[in-house]
């Protein structure tokens, strides 16, 4: 069975305080993503922050759940610069 789902609908339930213009994660070297074969960040990120595009990877972090999966999964290439948002910003779990 294939289930079509939009992760945006899931993220819509959540509360965020987005630190406009100050993403807490960055792709270090876009060229490195071009040669990455599995682009695991684009499938494993639970908030679908990463998308495969034109042979590379694009990313927006507004929906980030701050889990750390992308950093761990990109370890061989070590191409993700990952830190927590500034204090008070980012995901704000109501229930957790």
């Amino acid at each position: 069975m294939t289930v079509q789902i939009k992760v945006e609908d899931k993220l819509y339930q959540n509360r965020y305080r987005v630190d406009e213009g100050r993403p807490h994660i960055a792709i270090k070297d876009a060229a490195k993503c071009q040669s990455c074969t599995d682009k695991a960040c684009t499938t494993a990120c639970p908030a679908a922050c990463y998308a495969a595009e034109d042979g590379g990877v694009t990313a927006t972090f507004d929906g980030c759940l701050e889990c750390g999966t992308c950093r761990v999964i990109c370890q061989e290439n070590s191409n993700i610069d990952w830190f927590y948002p500034r204090g008070g910003y980012g995901i704000l779990y109501k229930f957790g």
Binding site: L11, Q13, N14, L65, C67, G68, V72, K94, F95
Partner: peptide, 9 residues
């Protein structure tokens, strides 16, 4: 009714 979606390691 779903009210939150969370992820964690």
């Amino acid at each position: 009714e779903v009210k939150e979606y969370a992820a964690h390691l």
